[in-house]
Design a protein around this nucleic acid. Structure first.
Length: 894
DNA sequence: GAACTGGAATAACCT
DNA sequence: CGAGGTTATTCCAGT
C-alpha cells in the first residue's frame, strides 16, 4: 500500500519520535517510516474512513500490493468480497473486493478528499487461509465432540463433498472468500473459516435481511452445518451466512449492520484511531497470535500480512489507487462486509455518509505502534493512571447469535450501563497534552478506551473465543464507538474525553455469541464452547507519554453469564461477605447473587491436586433469611482444625442436579490467626483483599483474589507458573526505572517482589483451585514502539494449556518493563484483582465498595500516594518536554 | 420498521 | 444403543 506523504509536513522528526504519525490534516503517513503495521486489516477500516475524508491515505506495504492486499483483507475481513449476492463462487481462495469508488455513494462521501481517488476496481484477493475468528485448520482438542460430529456428520450428510467441502466453491461462494487456500486443504479449516468469521460481519438478521440470509434461516437444517454443527459441510445456503463470518465475526458484529455503522461512523473518521488499531492488530498478529498463527492456525492472510509488514513496512506515497483498495478492504471487513448486503440499497455508502464524530474526525497524532496483544495481562493502574470500572455490568446478559437480532447493550445491575473511567491527575494529562500539542499532534485528541470480551474462567484473562463484543448503535446509545478487529477479536473503541472527565458510559456494547462449532474447529483453538458461557468485559487504554512510551492499562469487569438458560436457572454468586475464616468455621457468610432457591445448597469442597474432591460438606443455610438474591450460610468447620497454613477450598451453590454455581473461593485459616471480617455488604470485595492482607501468613495471596472462578485445571496452573513465575521474578523493579514516569512504583514494586510471589504461589500443585492469576502486572509501559513486539508481558495464552491456542511468547520478554502495579487482571469475580496487591500495603480491612465491582475503590486507596509522586511524575514529564523542545526531536524509532 | 426482549421449540450433546 | 436430561441455536412474537 502506498502512503501519501504530505509535503507540507516538516515534522518528520516528531513523527519519527512517535513512530507512527499521521498528520492530522493530511492523514498521510510519513514515508519510510518503518512501522510494523502488520495488520492491515484493522487498520484498513480506519484508514478507509480516513480516506473518505482525505482521499488518499493508504498504507502500503512494500510487498506487491495485490498480494498484500489480499492478505490484509483476509485478516480483516475479506468476507465482503463475496457479496451476499452470491458473487460467483470463488473457487480459488480469493476475495474480490470492490472499492467503494464503485459506489456512487462513496464518491459523495469523499467530498473532502479530492486527492485520493477511490479505485473502483475490484480487488481480488487471494486468501491464504480460511478461517476468520479462529483457525480452523486444526481441530482443537477441546472441540472434541463437536468437531468430530462435524466430521462424521459431514461425511454422512454430504458424502460427496466431505473433505473439500469448504474449499469447494460450490459449497459456498461466500465462504470461499473466507476460506483461504489453507482451508481448502482441510475440511476443518474450511468449515471453520466459514462460520466463525462471519459472525461479525453480519449477523444474519441484523445486517442481512435479504434473500441470502433468509433462505438459510428458514430452517435450521439449513443453518450452517445443518442447524447446529453440521452446517459447515454442506454447501447450503446456510453457509452463505457465514461466508464472512469466521474472520470477521469477531470484528464484525451483527451490530455492524448498516445502520449501526452509520451511526458509528462518527468514530470512523478518526484516522489515528484506526491506524492505531490497525497497527495494534498487526502487532498482535505478529507477536501473540501471530506466532501461533504462523504455525497455521491463523488465517494465512493474517499471518502473512502481519509478517510481511512486520518485516518493515515502508510507507510509500502513492496516488491512492491501490491503497485505496486496501483501505476499502479493511473497511469493508468491518462494517460493510457483513450487513451491507442486506439492503440492496445499502452499500458502503451508509457508513460513509455518516457524519464523523468530532473527536474522531480529528486526526490522532499519536500512535503507538506497539500495543500489547489482547491476551497480555496488564495492570489496571500505573503511576498516576488508573483505569477503573465505576459501574459494573449485570451478572447476566443474554448474548445474541448472529442469527438473531441484537439483544441490546450490556446493562448495569442498577439500571443504566457500565461506566469506566480513567483516573489521572488532570495536571498530568494537561501537560502531556500540551506537549503533544506543541508538537503539532493534537488538539483534543481523545484517548481511546478499548473494549473486548474476555474470558471469565480461572485462567488468565484473554479474549473469549466464543463471544465478541457487539457494537450497539441507535438513539439510545450516547457513546460513540467504532469497532476494529485485533487478532480475531473484535475490539470496540470508545473515546475518553476530558470533558467527560475521562469517563465513558458503556451503552454501546452488546455481546455476540459465536457458534461453538465454528470456533472449536479453528486451528489452534483448544477451548470448548459448551458451558463456557461466562465472559468479562475487558477495558484497555493506551496512554502515550511524551517520552515516547505508552502506558497500557486494563481492567476487567465482573463475570457476566451469557446463556439464556443459565441466566434463568443457574445460581450465580456475585459476592460473598467473607473470604476466609478460621478452620473452626462457625462464622456466617452472606452470599449475594441470583437465582437462589429456598432449597439451594451451599457446598464446601476441597480438591486435591488431581482435581478430586478430598473433602466436601454442605453448609447450613439460614432459611429464614432466604432471598433469591442472597443466602446466609454458616461456614462449616474445616476437616482439619490444626492447619498451620491457610487452606484454599471452594464452595458452590447447588439448585439441583446440574444447576450449580461456579466455584467460589474460600480460605480456611489456622485457628491462631486472627480473622479479619468485613461487613457483609460493604465488604464484599474485601474477602479477596483479606486474603492478601493476611498474606503474611498466606502463601498464596494472589489466589485469594479469584473467588469466583472455577477451579483451574492443575495443568494450567503449572503452565502459568512455569511461564510466568520466572519471568516475573526476573523482571525487577530496576526495570521500573524505565517507567520512570511512574512514581507509584515504589509501593507497588514490593508487591511484585518475589516474596509476594511466594514459591507456593508459583508451585503448580499447591492449590488445586487457585490460579496464578495474580501474576503481577507488568505494566504495559512500552519503551519504544517497535519493541513491544518483543517484550512479552504475560500472554495469557500460556496460561492455557492448549498448545496452539494462544501463542505465548513467554521467553521473549526482553525489554519488558514492569510497573509496580498490582495484579493483573481481574479476578474473575471482581475484576478488581489487579488492584489487590496494593491493598495489603495500606488499605484498611474493608474498603467501601462502590456499586458492585468497586475496583475503583481499591484503586483509589492505592492512589493515595504522597503527592510527591504525582509531582515527580510531572517533573519527569516536564523534563522530557523541556528536552524535546530544546532539541527538536530527532529520535527515530525503527 | 427496527431494535430489543422474553420465551420456547428443536437440534445436539451428554450421561 | 436408547432414554432422558442438558445445552446450544434458531425462531417467534410482543413491546
Amino acid at each position: 500500500m502506498a502512503v501519501v506523504v504530505n509535503p507540507g509536513l516538516d515534522r518528520s522528526e516528531m513523527i519519527l519520535n512517535y513512530h507512527t504519525f499521521l498528520s492530522a490534516e493530511t492523514y498521510s503517513y510519513t514515508p519510510n517510516i518503518s512501522l510494523s503495521l502488520p495488520l492491515s486489516s484493522p487498520c484498513l477500516p480506519t484508514q478507509y474512513h480516513n480516506l473518505q475524508t482525505s482521499p488518499s491515505i493508504s498504507v502500503s506495504i512494500s510487498q506487491p500490493s495485490s498480494y498484500t492486499t489480499s492478505e490484509d483483507m483476509g485478516s480483516m475481513g475479506y468476507y465482503q468480497s463475496s457479496g451476499p449476492n452470491g458473487a460467483p463462487a470463488l473457487e480459488s481462495p480469493r476475495i474480490e473486493i470492490t472499492a467503494y469508488g464503485q459506489f456512487p455513494e462513496d464518491e459523495v462521501e469523499e467530498n473532502n478528499a479530492p486527492v485520493a481517488k477511490r479505485v473502483n476496481s475490484v480487488v481480488t484477493l487471494t486468501l491464504p487461509s480460511g478461517e476468520g475468528y479462529r483457525d480452523p485448520s486444526c481441530l482443537s482438542p477441546a472441540s472434541s465432540l463437536s468437531s468430530r460430529s462435524c466430521h462424521s456428520e459431514a461425511s454422512s450428510y454430504e458424502s460427496g463433498y466431505s473433505c473439500n467441502y469448504d474449499n469447494s466453491p460450490q459449497n459456498s461462494p461466500w465462504q470461499s472468500p473466507c476460506v483461504s487456500p489453507k482451508g481448502s486443504s482441510s475440511l476443518l479449516s474450511g468449515t471453520l473459516g466459514t462460520s466463525p468469521r462471519q459472525s461479525p460481519t453480519g449477523s444474519p438478521r441484523t445486517s442481512v435481511t435479504d434473500e441470502s440470509w433468509t433462505a438459510p434461516r428458514g430452517s435450521r437444517s439449513n443453518s450452517p452445518c445443518g442447524g447446529k454443527r453440521k452446517y459447515s459441510f454442506s454447501g447450503n445456503a446456510s453457509q452463505k451466512y457465514h461466508p464472512y463470518s469466521p474472520n470477521q465475526s469477531p470484528g464484525l458484529s451483527p451490530q455492524t449492520s448498516p445502520r449501526l455503522s452509520m451511526t458509528e461512523d462518527t468514530w470512523l473518521p478518526n484516522t489515528n484511531q484506526y491506524t492505531n488499531s490497525a497497527i495494534v492488530a498487526a502487532i498482535n498478529a505478529l507477536s501473540t497470535d501471530g506466532m501461533t498463527d504462523i504455525g497455521e492456525g491463523i488465517p494465512l492472510k493474517t499471518r502473512k500480512t502481519s509478517m510481511d509488514h512486520s518485516a518493515s513496512v515502508s510507507l510509500k506515497i502513492e496516488p491512492g489507487g491501490e491503497e485505496t483498495g486496501s483501505a476499502e478492504l479493511c473497511h469493508e471487513d468491518y462494517s460493510t462486509s457483513r450487513p451491507a448486503f442486506k439492503k440492496e440499497g445499502y452499500t458502503r455508502t451508509s457508513f460513509l455518509d455518516v457524519p464523523h464524530h468530532p473527536y474522531w474526525s480529528k486526526p490522532k497524532p499519536y500512535i503507538s505502534p506497539s500495543l500489547p496483544a489482547l491476551d497480555w495481562q496488564l495492570p489496571s493502574s500505573s503511576g498516576p493512571y488508573s483505569l477503573q470500572i465505576e459501574v459494573q455490568p449485570k451478572s447476566h446478559h443474554r448474548a445474541h447469535y448472529e442469527t438473531e437480532g441484537s439483544r441490546g447493550a450490556v446493562k448495569a445491575l442498577a439500571g443504566g450501563h457500565p461506566v469506566v473511567q480513567l483516573k489521572a491527575p488532570l495536571c498530568l494529562l494537561r501537560r502531556v497534552r500540551t506537549y503533544l500539542r506543541l508538537h503539532g499532534y493534537m488538539e483534543s485528541e481523545p484517548l481511546t478506551l478499548q473494549l473486548f470480551i474476555g474470558t471469565a474462567d480461572d485462567r488468565l484473562l484473554r479474549p473469549h473465543a466464543f463471544y465478541q463484543v457487539h457494537r450497539i448503535t441507535g438513539k439510545t446509545v450516547s457513546t460513540p464507538s467504532h469497532e476494529i478487529m485485533q487478532a480475531n477479536t473484535k475490539v470496540l473503541e470508545i473515546p475518553l474525553l476530558p470533558e467527560s472527565n475521562m469517563r465513558a458510559i458503556i451503552d454501546c456494547a452488546g455481546i455476540l455469541k459465536l457458534r461453538n462449532s465454528d470456533i472449536e474447529l479453528r486451528k489452534g483453538e483448544t477451548d470448548i464452547g459448551r458451558k463456557n458461557t461466562r465472559v468479562r468485559m475487558v477495558f484497555r487504554v493506551h496512554i502515550n507519554q511524551p517520552n515516547g512510551r505508552t502506558v497500557s492499562l486494563q481492567v476487567a469487569s465482573n463475570p457476566i453469564e451469557c446463556s439464556q438458560r443459565s441466566a434463568q436457572e443457574l445460581p450465580l454468586v456475585d459476592r460473598q461477605s467473607v473470604d476466609s475464616c478460621p478452620a473452626t468455621g462457625g462464622e456466617h457468610m452472606l452470599i449475594s447473587g441470583h437465582n437462589f432457591q429456598l432449597d439451594s445448597k451451599v457446598v464446601f469442597v476441597e480438591k486435591g491436586q488431581d482435581g478430586h474432591h478430598i473433602w466436601e460438606i454442605e453448609a447450613k443455610v439460614e432459611k429464614d433469611s432466604f432471598k433469591t438474591t442472597a443466602l446466609l450460610v454458616e461456614i462449616p468447620t474445616y476437616r482439619n482444625q490444626r492447619i498451620s497454613s491457610p487452606v484454599l477450598v471452594n464452595f458452590y451453590i447447588c439448585n439441583g442436579k446440574r444447576k450449580r454455581s461456579q466455584y467460589q473461593r474460600f480460605t480456611y485459616l489456622p485457628c491462631n490467626v486472627p480473622t479479619i471480617k468485613t461487613e457483609p455488604h460493604d465488604d464484599y470485595e474485601l474477602p479477596r483483599l483479606c486474603a492478601q492482607q493476611h498474606s503474611p501468613g498466606l502463601t498464596k495471596p494472589y489466589y485469594a483474589l479469584q473467588a469466583v472462578s472455577p477451579m483451574m485445571p492443575s495443568e494450567h496452573r503449572a503452565c502459568v507458573t512455569a511461564a510466568y513465575g520466572p519471568q516475573r521474578l526476573t523482571a525487577k523493579p530496576s526495570s521500573l526505572s524505565c517507567s520512570s514516569s511512574s512514581p507509584s512504583t515504589s509501593p507497588k514494586l514490593q508487591d511484585l517482589s518475589p516474596t509476594h510471589f511466594s514459591p507456593q504461589c508459583l508451585s503448580p500443585g499447591s492449590n488445586p483451585g487457585l490460579q496464578p492469576i495474580a501474576i503481577p502486572h507488568v505494566s504495559a509501559i512500552q519503551p519504544t514502539p517497535g519493541r513491544y513486539q518483543q517484550s512479552v508481558l504475560y500472554p495469557s495464552g500460556s496460561a492455557s494449556s492448549s498448545p496452539g491456542s494462544h501463542p505465548s511468547t513467554p521467553s521473549s520478554a526482553p525489554e519488558l518493563i514492569f510497573t509496580p502495579t498490582h495484579s493483573l487482571t481481574q479476578s474473575p469475580v471482581t475484576g478488581d484483582a489487579p488492584e489487590m496487591p496494593k491493598v495489603p500495603l495500606r488499605s484498611g480491612p474493608s474498603p467501601l465498595l462502590q456499586e458492585e465491582g468497586t475496583p475503583a475503590t481499591l484503586a483509589i486507596s492505592i492512589k493515595q500516594e504522597p503527592q510527591e509522586l504525582d509531582q515527580m511524575y510531572l517533573d519527569d514529564v516536564n523534563e522530557i518536554i523541556r528536552n524535546d523542545l530544546s532539541s527538536i526531536s530527532v529520535h527515530t524509532h525503527a
